[in-house]
Design a protein around this nucleic acid. Structure first.
Lengths: 204, 204
DNA sequence: CTTTCAGGTTAACGAGCACTAACCCGGCTG
DNA sequence: CAGCCGGGTTAGTGCTCGTTAACCTGAAAG
C-alpha cells in the first residue's frame, strides 16, 4: 500500500491496458486471448489475474477510462473558455483530434466493443458519452444558432465519425503527416458544422 | 442446376447472409455462433453447411459483396454522368447515404471485421475499397481543383467516416427521421469537402 | 533468520464452438 | 414404384480459451 508499490503496480497495469487496447483494436475483443496480452507485456497468461479480475475487467477499465478522459478534457477546455464560442469549438476540435491521432487503438475499441461490457459498465460508458456529446451540442448551437437541437446532435455524431476515421487509413505514406492531418480534420469538421443549418441547396 | 432451383437456393443464401450481417454487426464476428445464425433463419446449426463452406465463407461473401455493390453503384452514377462534377458528387453522396441508412449492419461489419478474412479475400476487398475511394477522389478534385490529391484522399476517407456514423446512433427518436437525416448528411459532407482546400483559417 | 507477500510460474479443468458424421425425408425423374 | 438428391436433423469430436489451483521466489519487515 506504500506509494512506491502503488505507482510501480500502476505502471504495470497501464502497460497491460495499453497493449490490450492495441490488440483489441487489431483483432477484436474476442479475437485476442489472454495469453497474447500477457506475452505482449512479457509475462504469460494467467499472470494477468494478479492485476485484473478478468479479461472483461480490462475492457471495462479501458472503455470507462477513455470516456472519462474525453469528457474531462472537454469540460476543461470549456471551463478555460475562449473569448468566443468559436474559440471553444476550436479547442474542443483540437483536443479530440489529438486524441484520435495519438490513441488510435483506444478510439477504435471505443466504438467497436461497447456491447461486450456488463450491463452496469455499459450504462456508465454510454452516460459519459452522452454527456460528452451534449457538451459539443451546446457549443455548436452557440456557434450556429440556426440549427435545431436535433440537427446539431446528429451533426456532432457525424463529425465524431469524421474525426475518428483516421484508424481506418492505410498504413503507407499515401496520406498527410500528423500535423497536416490535424489541420485538415479541423477544417473539414468546421466545414461540416458550418453546413449544418444552411438551406438544403443540394439536389436530392 | 435448373433456374428454379438456383433462385430458390439463392434466396435462402441471401436470407442467411442478411441475418448473419445483422448478428455480426450486433455482436461481432467472433461473438456469434453458427447455431445463432441458423436459428435466425429457422434451421439449426450445421444446416448452414449445406449453403456455405463455413462461417468464414459467409463473412467473406458479405464483405466482398458490399464492396462490389458500392463500387458498381459508384461507377454507374459516374457513367450516367451528371452535367457537372457537382451533380456527379451529389449522386455519389446520395448513393452512399442510401446505403449507409438502409444497410447499417453491412456498413458496420464492413469496416469492423475486415481483418478476420483469409489473405486472398482481404486483398480483394481492400482493392475494391481502394478503387471506390479513387472514384470519389477524382470527382472531388474536379469539384475542388485547389486540393492536393493527398488531401482529397484523406478528406474522402474522413467523409466516409462521417456518412457511416449513423450505425452508432442511439435508438430513440432523439434524432432526425430518415429523409431529414439523408439531407443533413448530404449537406455536412458537402460542407466538409468545401473546406478541404480552404486556407487554414482556424487557430490551431 | 524468519515471515510475509506481491507477482510470477505451470498444469489442469470446463465451457463453448466450428465443423463432421451419420442418418432421414419428401419431392422430382425415369 | 424405385432411386436420386437437396436440404434438413441430432450426436459427437477436437480445439481453443478463460479461469482456477497449487506452487515458487526474491525482497522488504520485524
Amino acid at each position: 500500500m506504500s506509494p512506491a508499490h502503488a505507482s510501480a503496480s500502476t505502471s504495470r497495469r497501464e502497460q497491460i491496458l495499453k497493449e490490450a487496447a492495441r490488440l483489441f483494436a487489431e483483432r477484436g475483443f474476442h479475437g485476442v486471448g489472454v495469453d497474447e496480452i500477457g506475452a505482449a507485456v512479457g509475462i504469460s497468461g494467467p499472470g494477468l489475474y494478479r492485476h485484473f479480475a478478468g479479461k472483461d475487467a480490462m475492457l471495462a477499465e479501458l472503455l470507462v477510462g477513455i470516456s472519462e478522459r474525453l469528457l474531462d478534457g472537454g469540460r476543461m477546455r470549456i471551463a478555460e473558455g475562449g473569448e468566443s464560442p468559436e474559440a471553444v469549438l476550436d479547442a474542443l476540435l483540437d483536443g479530440h483530434i489529438d486524441f484520435a491521432l495519438d490513441d488510435r487503438p483506444l478510439i477504435t475499441v471505443h466504438d467497436r466493443e461497447l456491447d461486450r461490457l456488463r450491463e452496469a459498465d455499459r450504462k456508465r460508458v454510454r452516460q459519459l458519452q452522452r454527456q460528452y456529446v451534449e457538451l459539443w451540442v451546446d457549443v455548436v448551437r452557440k456557434v450556429h444558432p440556426g440549427a435545431s437541437e436535433t440537427q446539431s446532435r446528429a451533426a456532432v455524431h457525424a463529425v465524431f465519425g469524421l474525426l475518428n476515421s483516421t484508424p481506418h487509413l492505410g498504413r503507407p505514406g499515401a496520406l498527410p503527416g500528423r500535423t497536416e492531418m490535424a489541420e485538415l480534420l479541423h477544417r473539414l469538421a468546421l466545414g461540416a458544422f458550418r453546413a449544418v443549418a444552411a438551406e438544403p441547396a443540394a439536389g436530392a
